[in-house]
Design a protein around this nucleic acid. Structure first.
Lengths: 220, 220
DNA sequence: AAAGGATTAGGGCATTTGCCTTATTGGGAT
DNA sequence: ATCCCAATAAGGCAAATGCCCTAATCCTTT
């Protein structure tokens, strides 16, 4: 079973070198070369490749936009981004656009070919430099460990009941409604929330809820 | 310059096969083999390897915990997780613990050796299957595109001024304070917030702010 | 046994908020 | 030119909130 490949790249020299590399493998079939995103959409419609190698920086329509469109129209077609740069925001955009892989353009030929195979098998081939940046993004977007009573009695530590109250409050319930949910008096809810304010050093529901959600202490 | 390697793995057969693989390369120097996390911490203190190959599932102390400890004590030592399983939550935990790479145990020897080199160069070698799961995690945690007026006049679309008001409100400012920030009357702020409520279909500041933060429409 | 914290409950009061109404101005679209 | 909407501003009222107070019960730790 031959792999049908599409190449989208505006740099002629790079097109030549990649074409040459792909030509060395019998199981790879380069179906088309497009010079920009628009052209890529048209030729993809015609040739329906298994994998598209997509440059990021291009005139007319950039690679991220083209990837978003391809993902929308043909969810089964794999897209591997190619780039000389490794800007984090670009990587993030490309991932959100639905790219299945992310390679540096100076990747060795063997790696490129392996990446094509891995992409069609459902994997996400990535150059390690890129993967490191993706992991960094995952870490900064990760939930912060919520301060609990267990940790070295910091005053910044809510009890289990207070977490419960805070979660219901974050859902938009008022004192009375939270009380009904937890089978306690609204007065008690108020008392808990006062204690929460003191511990978190805030002075309103909005501040308390915003702090909890910003740090991903819980999901809504 | 030889690479000093540590191997942490409780399965004797796997230890043998990895040892054999590493032995084929002159520039790799296997400094120690540990059978669990505790042993890994002790031997790392003694041998100070450049890279540690770390199993996830182990008795006494699991690989994720050990990785967290290693990252804490020796930030410069790279840790590559090894696993037969590819559970998403494990991957996520390992990444947060500070793992620099993530390989399936059945990875080809050539890949394993390349991964070691890429890790010390600051990259994050990952098996494509694992990388695909990491990307999936990134996408679900990604900010949702905030509904803007441009998009197909849905009533669910705030004006530029309303976004501004909502952001200041999320910071915990009340009507008066937001008004002072934006040089407008608190009465006007109230009016904007009423309009925001109608558009977002909520009935309080907490609900509006929670909705915005949950969908990552802006950062605080 | 004593101390301290968590959880429960209530009173009181000033301020803020949610929701209703009206009204003027300016800019962009038809 | 006309119309719509964004942005501005204001009054009023009931409800909710933030913050102060006290106090009983139950647990855990000292």
């Amino acid at each position: 079973m031959k792999l049908a490949i599409g190449l989208v790249e505006d740099n002629a020299r790079l097109v030549d070198s990649i074409t040459a590399v792909l030509g060395c493998f019998d199981h790879l079939d380069l179906k088309f070369v497009a010079r920009n995103g628009e052209e890529a959409l048209v030729k993809t419609e015609v040739y329906r490749p298994d994998v598209v190698l997509m440059d990021i920086e291009m005139p007319v329509m950039d690679g991220v936009t083209a990837t978003r469109e391809l993902r929308e129209r043909y969810p089964e077609i794999k897209v591997i981004m190619l780039t000389v740069f490794d800007q984090e925001d670009r990587i993030f955009e490309a991932i959100l656009a639905g790219a299945n892989g992310y390679l540096l353009k100076d990747e060795r030929p063997q790696k490129l070919v392996e990446a094509l195979e891995e992409a069609v098998e459902g994997g996400a081939p990535m150059s390690p430099v890129i993967a490191a940046k993706a992991l960094k993004l995952l870490r900064v977007n990760a939930p912060q460990p919520a301060p609990t009573a267990s940790k070295a009695d910091n005053p910044y530590a809510l009890t289990r009941r207070e977490w419960e109250i805070l979660e219901w409050t974050a859902k938009g319930f008022n004192y009375h409604q939270v009380g009904t949910q937890l089978f306690i008096s609204p007065k008690t809810v108020r008392k808990h929330i006062e204690n929460i304010y003191r511990k978190l050093e805030v002075h309103s529901k909005v501040e308390a809820v915003a702090l909890a959600l910003k740090n991903r202490w819980f999901d809504l």
